[in-house]
């Protein structure tokens, strides 16, 4: 199936990605080619087959619901690109 430029834009918006015009052309071609390739699975009859969502047999594995400290606040903030003593910092969301 041919992926249109509009579809690429729409999917990029959903994926929170942006592309230059040249990149867009390439990704449009690549996606079209890959979609053509994966469409082969339609040859397999799956009438009445349930989708497989879990690959192993184990069902609910339960444990006690105990509160433990896994990370301190300091650790959680350690890798932040920008922070103050208590919070992650991001660029302004609302402009006055």
């Amino acid at each position: 199936m041919k992926i249109t430029k509009e579809t690429v834009d729409q999917v990029a918006t959903l994926a929170k990605l942006s592309f230059t015009d040249t990149e867009k052309e390439k990704i449009q071609q690549d996606l079209s080619k890959i979609i053509d390739f994966v469409e082969k699975i339609n040859e397999i009859d799956t009438d009445g087959v349930e989708p497989l969502t879990h690959i192993n047999e184990s069902v609910n594995v339960l444990r006690e619901d105990e509160a433990i400290e896994t990370l301190t606040q300091e650790e959680a903030l350690k890798n932040a690109p920008q922070k103050d003593s208590d919070y992650f910092k991001i660029p302004k969301v609302l402009n006055k």
Binding site: V38, I41, I44, T46, V49, E50, P51, L52, T53, I55
Partner: peptide
């Protein structure tokens, strides 16, 4: 057409 279909094919394969 794609995701759910592929999950079904995965069950067939398994």
């Amino acid at each position: 057409a794609y995701y759910s279909k592929a999950q079904k094919v995965r069950r067939v394969l398994k």
